[in-house]
């Protein structure tokens, strides 16, 4: 089943399209990463899906229900960007109030459980006005999951968090997926998207320029798998033949007596290269494969 489906979703301010006819499908149970530079339109896209802003044209459905729909709201959890929390409330009251708005009254124990999940177990009675930025961020995530939604939107969930807290949130997001929930998140932290997202879309100038699994995206930008081999010196009689073949197998060939580095377009080529060295009776001691990081792909765009 599709958790999110958008059809030519469009948002225009004046004559400027901020989101330009996006068609996107997110399957249930996956962690979907939405990438893009500042101003690419990521937040506007999420805001339209969650009812914060209204689409100019196009349509969408969430969990199979055409939106914008009031009845779907109790099944979604949202951590909007740039939001301020209710400063006069404690974390516990916050969760109880927002959960009741979603039509689910939660017990103190449930609130404590969710606060513990985000690492705020000691701050339940503390007023939000006394929270640090990181604590507010964690409470933002807590309020998005307190009512046990099936679909969770997280806009930059770990920005501003220290490394330990970010790792904690990553684990939480993965555990939510393991419970069968769908997580749709935007991030500037490309490493985290690469680590935890099963599918990714890259947004630029209001449109999606590429989407797919990490492997699909890598194969799209496939010319960048770098292989470095540490080996015995190549016998003089074999070197010319081997290097001639390597020139055809890949690009950016670098050779020293003990190391050979080459950039190939497919993982299959790695096996062929190793076989070619073995056929020339050259012992290989180490093979290092460097795939393009998401950041490198992202910057390439």
């Amino acid at each position: 089943m599709k958790a999110i489906e958008t059809r030519f979703l469009n948002k225009t301010y004046g004559s400027t399209p901020v989101v330009d006819g996006i068609n996107l499908i997110v399957k249930e149970g996956e962690i979907f990463g939405f990438l893009g530079r500042n101003g690419a339109g990521k937040s506007t896209f999420i805001n339209m899906l969650t009812g914060i802003t209204l689409p100019t044209s196009g349509s969408f459905s969430l969990l199979g229900v055409d939106g914008p729909s009031e009845r779907i709201k109790k099944h979604i959890g949202v951590m909007p960007d740039y939001s301020t929390l209710f400063n006069s409330m404690s974390a516990m009251k916050h969760l109880k109030f927002l959960s009741s708005l979603s039509g689910r009254s939660v017990s103190v124990a449930e609130c404590q459980h969710v606060l513990k999940l985000v690492g705020l177990e000691e701050a339940g009675k503390k007023k939000v006005s006394k929270f640090s930025f990181g604590m507010k961020k964690k409470l933002g995530i807590a309020q998005a999951i307190i009512h046990d939604p099936s679909l969770i939107f997280l806009d930059e969930p770990t920005s501003g968090l220290d490394a330990e807290s970010a790792l904690h949130i990553h684990k939480l997001i993965v555990s939510l997926q393991q419970q069968g929930k769908t997580v749709f998140m935007t991030s500037h932290n490309l490493d985290e998207v690469e680590k935890i997202c099963s599918n990714i879309a890259i947004m630029k100038d209001g449109g999606i320029i590429k989407s797919g699994t990490m492997d699909e995206l890598r194969s799209y930008y496939r010319s960048a798998i770098t292989v470095q081999l540490k080996h015995d010196p190549i016998p003089a009689g074999e070197a010319q033949k081997l290097y001639a073949w390597l020139e055809t197998a890949g690009t950016e060939l670098q050779k020293t007596p003990a190391f050979t580095t080459i950039t190939v377009g497919s993982e299959l080529k790695i096996a062929e290269i190793i076989r070619a060295f073995t056929n020339c009776h050259v012992n290989i001691f180490r093979v290092e494969v460097n795939e393009p990081s998401l950041e490198e792909m992202f910057l390439a765009e």
Binding site: T50, G51, I52, E70, K73, K74, I76, V78, P80, Y82, S83, T84, L85, F86, L98, L101, S102, G103, Q143
Partner: peptide, 13 residues
């Protein structure tokens, strides 16, 4: 103004 409305509109009508 304080953007707390975002929490409300994403949860109820």
């Amino acid at each position: 103004h304080e953007r707390t409305m975002r929490f409300l509109v994403t949860r109820t009508s």
